[in-house]
């Protein structure tokens, strides 16, 4: 109990307790348990929050599978895969930060937290590159959305498009590949339905990115607290809670990556 202080409580008897122990908890263990369960209840609401989007994704993917397959193929597997690796790496550094807080290693905790924030920022930077690419190729849903522009061969009907694919130039910057097989959707339908894919893409990755920005904000506060020496082997709950949040964000991406980038890559 490195930070323990002794004082007389309301009942008049003197006893030592940790300065971080709130008066409505009996022990540090009880206080930590309350925090962990409370954090998981919050994460539970987050699971269902993202769950609604996953449900919408599921239905539209079944309805417009061809549009999802075509649009998914226009995403860069390199950037997506790199970001997955970066985020998994940041989960490792976060776990190490919590571990160092548990074992009362102040500067190591701070360093791991800073490394986690750097990796989170790298992820967001890659996301900016990807979003800029979508704007460039008119793949942002709305008035300027233009699937056919990056996809000249599908301005014909689905059957003709397959036949014309050999002559068609690759899409602008090669963002969208020519059709690899007969599509159930014609060009007009693709123009409409790929927008649904990109709407979900921007909503899901955007919300995920927002969570990461909030997570980095939380970590800035936690890093400052760690630097000030507020944590020890008995009280590191804020670090652990930030960790739970960060790992949750990682899990969301673990599902987003195959759902958005790997709809149908084998054709």
């Amino acid at each position: 109990m490195s930070n323990a202080v002794a004082h007389a409580d309301d009942h008049g008897h003197a006893h030592a307790h940790h300065p971080a122990l709130q008066h409505h908890f009996d022990t540090m263990a009880q206080q930590k348990e309350a925090a962990v369960v409370g954090m998981w209840v919050f994460l539970l609401t987050e699971i269902l929050f993202f769950g609604g989007l996953f449900a919408a994704y599921m239905v539209y993917r079944i309805w417009y599978f061809d549009a999802f397959a075509e649009a998914s193929r226009s995403l860069s597997l390199f950037w997506g895969g790199l970001n997955t690796a970066v985020l998994i790496g940041s989960s490792l550094t976060m776990a190490m930060a919590v571990r160092c807080a548990q074992t009362n290693k102040r500067s190591a905790t701070v360093n791991w937290l800073i490394l986690t924030m750097i990796l989170g920022t790298v992820f967001l930077g890659v996301k900016v590159i990807e979003y800029a690419d979508k704007f460039e190729h008119h793949h942002v849903p709305g008035y300027n959305f233009q699937w056919a522009a990056a996809h000249p061969s599908t301005s014909l009907g689905a059957g003709e498009a397959a036949a014309g694919a050999e002559h068609a130039a690759p899409g602008a910057g090669g963002a969208a590949a020519e059709p690899h097989r007969e599509l159930a959707l014609n060009a007009d339908q693709l123009q409409l339905t790929t927008q649904i894919y990109f709407s979900l893409y921007f909503t899901m990755t955007g919300l995920h990115a927002l969570h990461m920005i909030i997570g980095i904000g939380i970590m800035l506060v936690i890093t400052r607290m760690a630097w000030q020496g507020k944590f020890d082997e008995e009280y590191y709950t804020p670090v652990e809670m930030a960790g739970l949040y960060w790992h949750f964000v990682d899990i969301v991406w673990i599902f987003l990556f195959p759902l958005l980038y790997l709809v149908e890559r084998h054709v």
């Binding site: 348990e33 962990v36 369960v37 998981w40 699971i47 269902l48 769950g51 609604g52 449900a55």
Partner: peptide
């Protein structure tokens, strides 16, 4: 974690399964 925490986690996944 405690059984209570495990139950909380399982509850979240259970309701996600209901939703989907």
């Amino acid at each position: 974690a405690s059984k209570l925490t495990k139950l909380t986690v399982a509850t979240g996944l259970f309701f996600l399964a209901i939703l989907l």
